[in-house]
Nucleic acid binder design. Structure first.
Lengths: 198, 198
DNA sequence: TGTACATCAGTGAACGCGCGTTCACTGATGTAC
DNA sequence: TGTACATCAGTGAACGCGCGTTCACTGATGTAC
Protein backbone atom coordinates (compact mmCIF):
# COMPACT_ATOMS: atom_id res chain seq x y z
CA UNK A 1 0.00 0.00 0.00
CA UNK A 2 1.12 3.53 -0.71
CA UNK A 3 2.33 5.54 2.25
CA UNK A 4 -0.57 7.09 4.10
CA UNK A 5 -0.84 10.86 4.39
CA UNK A 6 -3.33 12.98 6.25
CA UNK A 7 -6.06 14.49 4.12
CA UNK A 8 -4.79 18.05 4.26
CA UNK A 9 -1.33 17.17 2.94
CA UNK A 10 -2.78 14.81 0.36
CA UNK A 11 -5.20 17.43 -0.92
CA UNK A 12 -2.35 19.82 -1.53
CA UNK A 13 -0.38 17.16 -3.33
CA UNK A 14 -3.36 16.24 -5.49
CA UNK A 15 -4.31 19.78 -6.48
CA UNK A 16 -0.68 20.46 -7.34
CA UNK A 17 -0.57 17.41 -9.59
CA UNK A 18 -3.93 18.35 -11.10
CA UNK A 19 -2.57 21.76 -12.06
CA UNK A 20 0.28 20.10 -13.93
CA UNK A 21 -2.09 17.78 -15.78
CA UNK A 22 -4.43 20.65 -16.64
CA UNK A 23 -1.55 22.66 -18.08
CA UNK A 24 -0.59 19.70 -20.25
CA UNK A 25 -3.97 18.60 -21.52
CA UNK A 26 -6.65 21.05 -20.51
CA UNK A 27 -9.76 20.13 -18.58
CA UNK A 28 -11.10 18.01 -21.42
CA UNK A 29 -8.25 15.51 -21.17
CA UNK A 30 -8.17 15.64 -17.39
CA UNK A 31 -9.26 12.39 -15.79
CA UNK A 32 -9.23 10.80 -12.36
CA UNK A 33 -7.23 7.73 -13.35
CA UNK A 34 -4.24 9.74 -14.55
CA UNK A 35 -4.47 12.12 -11.64
CA UNK A 36 -4.40 9.24 -9.16
CA UNK A 37 -1.48 7.63 -10.95
CA UNK A 38 0.53 10.85 -10.93
CA UNK A 39 0.44 10.90 -7.13
CA UNK A 40 0.92 7.15 -6.76
CA UNK A 41 -2.63 6.34 -5.75
CA UNK A 42 -5.44 4.21 -7.05
CA UNK A 43 -8.39 6.11 -8.60
CA UNK A 44 -10.85 5.40 -5.80
CA UNK A 45 -8.43 6.84 -3.26
CA UNK A 46 -9.06 10.32 -4.68
CA UNK A 47 -12.56 10.09 -3.23
CA UNK A 48 -11.14 9.95 0.31
CA UNK A 49 -10.12 13.59 -0.20
CA UNK A 50 -12.55 15.04 -2.73
CA UNK A 51 -16.22 14.61 -3.46
CA UNK A 52 -15.56 14.00 -7.14
CA UNK A 53 -13.94 15.22 -10.32
CA UNK A 54 -15.65 18.59 -10.27
CA UNK A 55 -14.62 19.13 -6.66
CA UNK A 56 -10.98 18.43 -7.58
CA UNK A 57 -11.19 20.99 -10.39
CA UNK A 58 -12.76 23.52 -8.06
CA UNK A 59 -10.02 23.12 -5.46
CA UNK A 60 -7.36 23.24 -8.17
CA UNK A 61 -8.84 26.49 -9.41
CA UNK A 62 -8.29 27.91 -5.93
CA UNK A 63 -4.63 26.98 -6.07
CA UNK A 64 -4.37 28.43 -9.54
CA UNK A 65 -5.97 31.70 -8.45
CA UNK A 66 -3.64 32.05 -5.49
CA UNK A 67 -0.59 31.47 -7.67
CA UNK A 68 -1.60 33.94 -10.36
CA UNK A 69 -2.64 36.66 -7.92
CA UNK A 70 0.51 35.93 -5.95
CA UNK A 71 2.53 36.64 -9.09
CA UNK A 72 0.97 40.10 -9.33
CA UNK A 73 1.53 40.85 -5.66
CA UNK A 74 5.15 39.71 -5.82
CA UNK A 75 5.81 41.87 -8.87
CA UNK A 76 4.18 44.84 -7.19
CA UNK A 77 6.26 44.41 -4.03
CA UNK A 78 9.59 43.73 -5.67
CA UNK A 79 9.51 46.41 -8.35
CA UNK A 80 10.44 49.97 -7.70
CA UNK A 81 7.65 51.49 -9.72
CA UNK A 82 4.39 50.40 -11.42
CA UNK A 83 5.84 50.14 -14.92
CA UNK A 84 8.67 47.97 -13.73
CA UNK A 85 6.13 45.86 -11.86
CA UNK A 86 4.29 45.21 -15.11
CA UNK A 87 7.50 44.24 -16.84
CA UNK A 88 8.42 41.91 -14.01
CA UNK A 89 4.95 40.38 -14.10
CA UNK A 90 5.20 39.72 -17.82
CA UNK A 91 8.62 38.13 -17.46
CA UNK A 92 7.43 35.82 -14.72
CA UNK A 93 4.36 34.79 -16.64
CA UNK A 94 6.64 33.91 -19.52
CA UNK A 95 8.91 31.93 -17.26
CA UNK A 96 5.92 30.08 -15.80
CA UNK A 97 4.78 29.10 -19.29
CA UNK A 98 8.31 28.09 -20.21
CA UNK A 99 8.39 25.68 -17.28
CA UNK A 100 5.08 24.12 -18.23
CA UNK A 101 2.57 25.96 -16.09
CA UNK A 102 0.60 27.19 -19.09
CA UNK A 103 -1.58 29.76 -17.39
CA UNK A 104 -3.67 30.95 -20.34
CA UNK A 105 -4.18 27.39 -21.47
CA UNK A 106 -5.65 26.51 -18.10
CA UNK A 107 -7.82 29.63 -18.11
CA UNK A 108 -9.25 28.88 -21.51
CA UNK A 109 -9.94 25.21 -20.95
CA UNK A 110 -11.51 25.73 -17.54
CA UNK A 111 -13.86 28.41 -18.77
CA UNK A 112 -15.61 26.20 -21.30
CA UNK A 113 -19.27 25.99 -20.30
CA UNK A 114 -20.61 22.67 -19.10
CA UNK A 115 -23.40 21.19 -17.02
CA UNK A 116 -21.89 22.46 -13.77
CA UNK A 117 -22.20 26.16 -14.39
CA UNK A 118 -20.09 26.86 -11.30
CA UNK A 119 -16.68 26.21 -12.79
CA UNK A 120 -16.78 28.55 -15.80
CA UNK A 121 -18.19 31.34 -13.63
CA UNK A 122 -15.39 30.89 -11.13
CA UNK A 123 -12.75 30.87 -13.87
CA UNK A 124 -14.11 34.06 -15.32
CA UNK A 125 -14.11 35.68 -11.92
CA UNK A 126 -10.44 34.80 -11.53
CA UNK A 127 -9.73 36.41 -14.87
CA UNK A 128 -11.62 39.60 -14.14
CA UNK A 129 -9.85 39.78 -10.77
CA UNK A 130 -6.53 39.48 -12.56
CA UNK A 131 -7.42 42.21 -15.03
CA UNK A 132 -8.56 44.45 -12.17
CA UNK A 133 -5.19 44.02 -10.46
CA UNK A 134 -3.30 44.88 -13.63
CA UNK A 135 -5.56 47.85 -14.17
CA UNK A 136 -4.69 48.99 -10.68
CA UNK A 137 -1.00 48.92 -11.60
CA UNK A 138 -1.71 50.96 -14.71
CA UNK A 139 -3.59 53.58 -12.72
CA UNK A 140 -0.78 53.69 -10.16
CA UNK A 141 1.54 54.35 -13.05
CA UNK A 142 -0.68 57.16 -14.23
CA UNK A 143 -0.69 58.73 -10.78
CA UNK A 144 3.07 58.49 -10.50
CA UNK A 145 3.36 60.09 -13.93
CA UNK A 146 5.08 57.15 -15.60
CA UNK A 147 2.08 56.20 -17.67
CA UNK A 148 0.28 58.56 -20.01
CA UNK A 149 -2.82 59.93 -18.38
CA UNK A 150 -4.81 60.02 -21.61
CA UNK A 151 -5.02 56.25 -22.07
CA UNK A 152 -7.85 54.07 -20.88
CA UNK A 153 -6.58 51.91 -18.02
CA UNK A 154 -8.99 49.09 -18.80
CA UNK A 155 -7.84 48.90 -22.40
CA UNK A 156 -4.24 48.86 -21.26
CA UNK A 157 -4.94 46.09 -18.74
CA UNK A 158 -6.71 43.96 -21.33
CA UNK A 159 -3.92 44.50 -23.83
CA UNK A 160 -1.46 43.43 -21.18
CA UNK A 161 -3.50 40.32 -20.37
CA UNK A 162 -3.51 39.38 -24.03
CA UNK A 163 0.22 39.71 -24.54
CA UNK A 164 1.09 36.38 -23.07
CA UNK A 165 -1.79 34.34 -24.43
CA UNK A 166 -0.60 33.79 -28.02
CA UNK A 167 2.80 32.93 -26.65
CA UNK A 168 1.35 30.05 -24.66
CA UNK A 169 -0.33 28.70 -27.79
CA UNK A 170 2.86 28.95 -29.83
CA UNK A 171 4.83 27.41 -27.04
CA UNK A 172 2.52 24.41 -27.25
CA UNK A 173 2.78 24.34 -31.02
CA UNK A 174 6.48 24.81 -31.50
CA UNK A 175 7.84 23.72 -28.14
CA UNK A 176 11.47 24.53 -27.38
CA UNK A 177 11.94 26.15 -30.77
CA UNK A 178 9.78 29.07 -29.70
CA UNK A 179 11.77 31.41 -27.52
CA UNK A 180 9.13 32.67 -25.16
CA UNK A 181 11.45 34.91 -23.16
CA UNK A 182 12.48 36.70 -26.34
CA UNK A 183 8.82 37.10 -27.26
CA UNK A 184 8.09 38.61 -23.87
CA UNK A 185 10.91 41.10 -24.31
CA UNK A 186 9.79 42.08 -27.81
CA UNK A 187 6.17 42.49 -26.92
CA UNK A 188 7.00 44.40 -23.75
CA UNK A 189 8.91 46.93 -25.79
CA UNK A 190 5.76 47.54 -27.84
CA UNK A 191 3.54 47.77 -24.78
CA UNK A 192 5.89 50.19 -23.07
CA UNK A 193 5.90 52.40 -26.15
CA UNK A 194 2.10 52.39 -26.17
CA UNK A 195 1.55 53.36 -22.55
CA UNK A 196 4.70 55.05 -21.24
CA UNK A 197 4.92 58.79 -21.09
CA UNK A 198 7.65 59.28 -23.63
CA UNK B 1 -38.80 11.96 -41.76
CA UNK B 2 -36.74 15.08 -42.13
CA UNK B 3 -36.35 16.48 -45.60
CA UNK B 4 -33.56 14.69 -47.43
CA UNK B 5 -30.55 16.62 -48.66
CA UNK B 6 -27.59 15.50 -50.71
CA UNK B 7 -24.43 14.86 -48.75
CA UNK B 8 -22.54 17.90 -49.92
CA UNK B 9 -25.24 20.36 -48.85
CA UNK B 10 -25.80 18.49 -45.60
CA UNK B 11 -22.10 18.53 -44.75
CA UNK B 12 -22.01 22.28 -45.10
CA UNK B 13 -25.07 22.65 -42.92
CA UNK B 14 -23.60 20.36 -40.28
CA UNK B 15 -20.17 21.99 -40.12
CA UNK B 16 -21.86 25.39 -39.89
CA UNK B 17 -23.97 24.23 -36.97
CA UNK B 18 -20.94 22.60 -35.36
CA UNK B 19 -19.09 25.90 -35.47
CA UNK B 20 -21.92 27.57 -33.58
CA UNK B 21 -21.96 24.85 -30.93
CA UNK B 22 -18.19 24.99 -30.55
CA UNK B 23 -18.30 28.74 -30.03
CA UNK B 24 -20.89 28.27 -27.31
CA UNK B 25 -19.45 25.36 -25.40
CA UNK B 26 -15.99 24.50 -26.66
CA UNK B 27 -14.96 21.10 -27.93
CA UNK B 28 -15.36 19.54 -24.50
CA UNK B 29 -19.09 20.15 -24.47
CA UNK B 30 -19.51 19.35 -28.13
CA UNK B 31 -21.52 16.16 -28.72
CA UNK B 32 -23.16 14.39 -31.63
CA UNK B 33 -26.65 14.34 -30.12
CA UNK B 34 -26.88 18.12 -29.82
CA UNK B 35 -25.27 18.64 -33.19
CA UNK B 36 -27.82 16.36 -34.85
CA UNK B 37 -30.68 18.07 -33.07
CA UNK B 38 -29.49 21.51 -34.13
CA UNK B 39 -29.87 20.52 -37.79
CA UNK B 40 -33.09 18.57 -37.23
CA UNK B 41 -31.59 15.12 -37.60
CA UNK B 42 -31.27 12.03 -35.50
CA UNK B 43 -27.74 11.29 -34.13
CA UNK B 44 -27.09 8.31 -36.34
CA UNK B 45 -27.82 10.37 -39.45
CA UNK B 46 -24.60 12.29 -38.88
CA UNK B 47 -22.73 9.13 -39.81
CA UNK B 48 -24.18 9.27 -43.32
CA UNK B 49 -21.98 12.31 -43.90
CA UNK B 50 -19.04 11.96 -41.55
CA UNK B 51 -16.93 9.08 -40.29
CA UNK B 52 -17.37 10.14 -36.70
CA UNK B 53 -17.08 12.90 -34.15
CA UNK B 54 -13.42 13.59 -34.83
CA UNK B 55 -14.10 13.79 -38.55
CA UNK B 56 -16.82 16.39 -37.93
CA UNK B 57 -14.40 18.46 -35.86
CA UNK B 58 -11.77 18.16 -38.54
CA UNK B 59 -14.12 19.37 -41.26
CA UNK B 60 -15.39 22.15 -39.02
CA UNK B 61 -11.82 23.27 -38.47
CA UNK B 62 -11.52 23.66 -42.24
CA UNK B 63 -14.53 25.94 -42.31
CA UNK B 64 -13.16 27.86 -39.37
CA UNK B 65 -9.79 28.31 -41.06
CA UNK B 66 -11.36 29.57 -44.27
CA UNK B 67 -13.49 32.08 -42.42
CA UNK B 68 -10.64 33.46 -40.33
CA UNK B 69 -8.21 33.69 -43.24
CA UNK B 70 -11.00 35.15 -45.30
CA UNK B 71 -11.35 37.91 -42.74
CA UNK B 72 -7.70 38.82 -43.18
CA UNK B 73 -7.95 38.78 -46.97
CA UNK B 74 -11.08 40.90 -46.97
CA UNK B 75 -9.48 43.45 -44.66
CA UNK B 76 -6.39 43.57 -46.85
CA UNK B 77 -8.42 44.07 -50.01
CA UNK B 78 -10.85 46.65 -48.68
CA UNK B 79 -8.43 48.85 -46.79
CA UNK B 80 -6.37 51.53 -48.43
CA UNK B 81 -3.20 50.79 -46.52
CA UNK B 82 -1.77 48.09 -44.23
CA UNK B 83 -2.45 49.92 -40.99
CA UNK B 84 -6.05 50.52 -41.93
CA UNK B 85 -6.27 46.84 -42.87
CA UNK B 86 -5.20 45.87 -39.37
CA UNK B 87 -7.77 48.18 -37.84
CA UNK B 88 -10.47 46.79 -40.07
CA UNK B 89 -9.43 43.24 -39.18
CA UNK B 90 -9.63 43.99 -35.49
CA UNK B 91 -13.05 45.56 -35.82
CA UNK B 92 -14.40 42.59 -37.73
CA UNK B 93 -13.00 40.14 -35.25
CA UNK B 94 -14.76 42.06 -32.55
CA UNK B 95 -17.99 42.04 -34.49
CA UNK B 96 -17.68 38.30 -35.03
CA UNK B 97 -17.28 37.72 -31.32
CA UNK B 98 -20.18 40.05 -30.59
CA UNK B 99 -22.42 37.95 -32.80
CA UNK B 100 -21.41 34.72 -31.08
CA UNK B 101 -18.65 33.35 -33.29
CA UNK B 102 -16.11 33.34 -30.49
CA UNK B 103 -12.97 32.77 -32.50
CA UNK B 104 -10.38 32.63 -29.74
CA UNK B 105 -12.61 30.42 -27.68
CA UNK B 106 -12.77 27.93 -30.51
CA UNK B 107 -9.02 28.12 -31.03
CA UNK B 108 -8.26 27.44 -27.41
CA UNK B 109 -10.68 24.60 -26.93
CA UNK B 110 -9.69 22.85 -30.14
CA UNK B 111 -6.01 22.96 -29.35
CA UNK B 112 -6.29 20.96 -26.15
CA UNK B 113 -4.24 17.79 -26.60
CA UNK B 114 -6.08 14.49 -26.76
CA UNK B 115 -5.72 10.97 -28.05
CA UNK B 116 -6.07 12.06 -31.66
CA UNK B 117 -2.96 14.17 -31.98
CA UNK B 118 -4.14 15.41 -35.38
CA UNK B 119 -6.64 18.00 -34.22
CA UNK B 120 -4.43 20.09 -31.90
CA UNK B 121 -1.67 20.10 -34.52
CA UNK B 122 -4.09 21.33 -37.14
CA UNK B 123 -5.45 24.03 -34.84
CA UNK B 124 -1.97 25.27 -34.09
CA UNK B 125 -1.16 25.36 -37.77
CA UNK B 126 -4.21 27.54 -38.36
CA UNK B 127 -3.05 29.88 -35.65
CA UNK B 128 0.51 30.15 -36.93
CA UNK B 129 -0.89 30.75 -40.42
CA UNK B 130 -3.00 33.57 -39.04
CA UNK B 131 -0.06 35.14 -37.25
CA UNK B 132 2.02 34.87 -40.43
CA UNK B 133 -0.64 36.76 -42.38
CA UNK B 134 -0.82 39.51 -39.79
CA UNK B 135 2.96 39.68 -39.76
CA UNK B 136 2.83 40.15 -43.50
CA UNK B 137 0.56 43.15 -43.04
CA UNK B 138 2.95 44.60 -40.49
CA UNK B 139 5.90 44.22 -42.84
CA UNK B 140 3.88 45.78 -45.66
CA UNK B 141 3.27 48.69 -43.34
CA UNK B 142 6.97 48.95 -42.65
CA UNK B 143 7.76 49.00 -46.36
CA UNK B 144 5.15 51.66 -47.01
CA UNK B 145 6.61 53.71 -44.17
CA UNK B 146 3.47 53.72 -42.02
CA UNK B 147 4.90 51.36 -39.44
CA UNK B 148 8.14 51.97 -37.59
CA UNK B 149 10.96 50.01 -39.11
CA UNK B 150 12.68 49.35 -35.79
CA UNK B 151 9.98 47.10 -34.38
CA UNK B 152 9.98 43.33 -34.61
CA UNK B 153 7.17 42.30 -36.97
CA UNK B 154 6.65 38.97 -35.22
CA UNK B 155 6.21 40.65 -31.85
CA UNK B 156 3.75 43.08 -33.37
CA UNK B 157 1.79 40.27 -34.99
CA UNK B 158 1.59 38.32 -31.74
CA UNK B 159 0.55 41.41 -29.83
CA UNK B 160 -2.17 41.96 -32.40
CA UNK B 161 -3.33 38.35 -32.13
CA UNK B 162 -3.59 38.73 -28.37
CA UNK B 163 -5.66 41.90 -28.45
CA UNK B 164 -8.93 40.21 -29.09
CA UNK B 165 -8.48 37.14 -26.90
CA UNK B 166 -9.22 38.63 -23.48
CA UNK B 167 -12.19 40.38 -24.98
CA UNK B 168 -13.70 37.05 -25.97
CA UNK B 169 -13.31 35.76 -22.43
CA UNK B 170 -14.87 38.86 -20.91
CA UNK B 171 -17.65 38.73 -23.44
CA UNK B 172 -18.45 35.26 -22.18
CA UNK B 173 -18.19 36.36 -18.57
CA UNK B 174 -20.13 39.58 -18.68
CA UNK B 175 -22.26 39.11 -21.77
CA UNK B 176 -24.03 42.14 -23.16
CA UNK B 177 -22.66 44.34 -20.40
CA UNK B 178 -19.19 44.15 -21.90
CA UNK B 179 -18.93 46.53 -24.83
CA UNK B 180 -16.58 44.67 -27.11
CA UNK B 181 -16.61 47.24 -29.88
CA UNK B 182 -15.50 49.91 -27.42
CA UNK B 183 -12.78 47.59 -26.19
CA UNK B 184 -11.56 47.07 -29.74
CA UNK B 185 -11.41 50.81 -30.30
CA UNK B 186 -9.52 51.44 -27.07
CA UNK B 187 -7.01 48.70 -27.58
CA UNK B 188 -6.48 49.66 -31.21
CA UNK B 189 -5.50 53.14 -30.13
CA UNK B 190 -2.79 51.62 -27.94
CA UNK B 191 -1.60 49.29 -30.67
CA UNK B 192 -1.44 52.08 -33.21
CA UNK B 193 0.61 54.17 -30.84
CA UNK B 194 3.01 51.27 -30.34
CA UNK B 195 3.67 50.49 -33.97
CA UNK B 196 2.86 53.61 -36.02
CA UNK B 197 5.66 55.88 -37.13
CA UNK B 198 5.85 58.92 -34.83
C1' DT C 1 6.64 1.32 27.87
C1' DG C 2 3.17 -1.84 26.24
C1' DT C 3 -1.42 -3.30 24.78
C1' DA C 4 -6.27 -2.55 22.94
C1' DC C 5 -9.00 0.11 20.27
C1' DA C 6 -10.69 3.70 17.11
C1' DT C 7 -9.88 6.19 13.19
C1' DC C 8 -9.08 6.80 8.66
C1' DA C 9 -6.32 6.61 4.19
C1' DG C 10 -5.68 3.27 0.61
C1' DT C 11 -7.44 -0.87 -2.25
C1' DG C 12 -9.72 -3.38 -5.97
C1' DA C 13 -13.82 -5.12 -7.75
C1' DA C 14 -18.03 -3.82 -9.61
C1' DC C 15 -21.51 -0.66 -11.15
C1' DG C 16 -23.80 2.38 -14.25
C1' DC C 17 -24.34 6.48 -16.96
C1' DG C 18 -23.31 9.09 -21.03
C1' DC C 19 -22.26 9.02 -25.46
C1' DG C 20 -20.20 7.68 -29.78
C1' DT C 21 -21.09 4.25 -33.08
C1' DT C 22 -23.29 0.26 -35.73
C1' DC C 23 -26.81 -1.89 -38.35
C1' DA C 24 -30.95 -3.55 -40.48
C1' DC C 25 -34.69 -1.24 -42.25
C1' DT C 26 -37.60 2.55 -44.42
C1' DG C 27 -39.14 5.42 -47.80
C1' DA C 28 -38.12 9.50 -50.63
C1' DT C 29 -35.79 10.95 -54.88
C1' DG C 30 -33.92 10.56 -59.23
C1' DT C 31 -33.11 7.79 -63.42
C1' DA C 32 -33.81 4.33 -67.16
C1' DC C 33 -36.84 2.71 -70.50
C1' DT D 1 -46.05 10.79 -69.37
C1' DG D 2 -45.93 6.63 -66.71
C1' DT D 3 -43.89 2.64 -64.41
C1' DA D 4 -39.97 -0.14 -62.34
C1' DC D 5 -35.83 0.03 -60.19
C1' DA D 6 -31.60 1.66 -57.93
C1' DT D 7 -29.67 4.77 -54.89
C1' DC D 8 -29.07 6.84 -50.77
C1' DA D 9 -30.34 9.97 -46.76
C1' DG D 10 -32.84 9.39 -42.54
C1' DT D 11 -34.49 6.28 -38.52
C1' DG D 12 -34.50 3.98 -34.07
C1' DA D 13 -33.01 0.27 -31.42
C1' DA D 14 -29.12 -1.70 -29.45
C1' DC D 15 -24.33 -2.12 -28.36
C1' DG D 16 -20.14 -1.27 -25.89
C1' DC D 17 -16.34 1.45 -24.27
C1' DG D 18 -14.49 4.83 -21.14
C1' DC D 19 -14.65 6.73 -17.01
C1' DG D 20 -16.46 8.65 -12.79
C1' DT D 21 -18.12 6.77 -8.66
C1' DT D 22 -19.47 3.39 -4.83
C1' DC D 23 -18.58 0.10 -1.36
C1' DA D 24 -16.99 -3.51 1.65
C1' DC D 25 -12.64 -4.54 3.24
C1' DT D 26 -7.64 -3.93 4.76
C1' DG D 27 -4.09 -2.50 7.49
C1' DA D 28 -1.35 1.43 9.06
C1' DT D 29 -1.26 5.19 12.43
C1' DG D 30 -2.29 7.57 16.42
C1' DT D 31 -4.47 7.68 21.01
C1' DA D 32 -6.30 6.08 25.57
C1' DC D 33 -5.30 3.70 29.63
Amino acid sequence: MTQKMNTEARREQITGAALVLLAERGSEGFNIADLAESVGLVPSAIYRHFEGREDVLDATLDVFRDRVYGLVEAARNEAEDPLQALELLLTRHARLIESGGAVPHIMASMSAPDRHAARPAKTQKIFTGYVARVERLVRDGQESGQVRSDIDSTSAALLFAGMIQPAALLRHAEGERFDIMAHAAGVWELFRRAVARD
